[in-house]
Design a binder for these strands. Sequence first.
DNA 1: AGTGAGATGGCCT
DNA 2: GGCCATCTCACTA
Length: 215
Amino acid sequence: MGTRDLQRSPHDVQPAADRASMIPCSFYRGDTTTVARKLLGAVLCHRTESGKILRGRIVETEAYLGIEDPACHTFGDRRTAKTRSMYLDGGHSYIYLIYGMHYCLNVVTRSEREPEAVLLRAIEPLDWKSPGGKPTRTLLPSNGPGKLCRYLGLTKAHDGLPMWTKSSGLWIQEGEAVDDGLVVETSRVGVAYAGEAAGWPLRFYIKGNLFVSKP
DNA sequence: AGTGAGATGGCCT
DNA sequence: GGCCATCTCACTA
């Protein structure tokens, strides 16, 4: 690696091989609710330490709207060690530990001044087949934010990574667009403490998809 | 099918 | 000390 490479910011680095199907960082700087909706159908990918690439089609997301959203970790502009990655530019990962044992993966949206994010709640794995013939809901490996991270092998070590480039090992590729008629819009899961915001319609999932966490 | 409790650790909303 | 953007298992029916 030469000195020119060292002087470049991660934003300038987008290898040519990435451009075709990669979702660019500019996409994540947009409106968070729109990003959550539009990520349905996109393909989440992780290159594990052994070099294996695990992929899954995003089938369920939630939008978290930053300092004015009582359900969001950055509500009231709380900048802590835990929420540090939320204050990165759109397109970075934000991974946190919940209930002492599960990790949850978000994609940060907007800018450094607007710490918003989209929680990735469920994927339909593309390189997986059900052990016993037809898949049954209770045995699925990635139908929920904690299970999604476990399936992909994601931990706090993958917090703060740029997700618009394959070089990070964690990225999102464009997928087949999901028709509006196939999108269910409802309230977010597990945020009853957030008062009125608990009812905001910020959860999106693909209607009828087996891998949605709570249809 | 639906309910309830326990696991388990980092951070106080 | 109490609370979580969760998951699994045991228990009822």
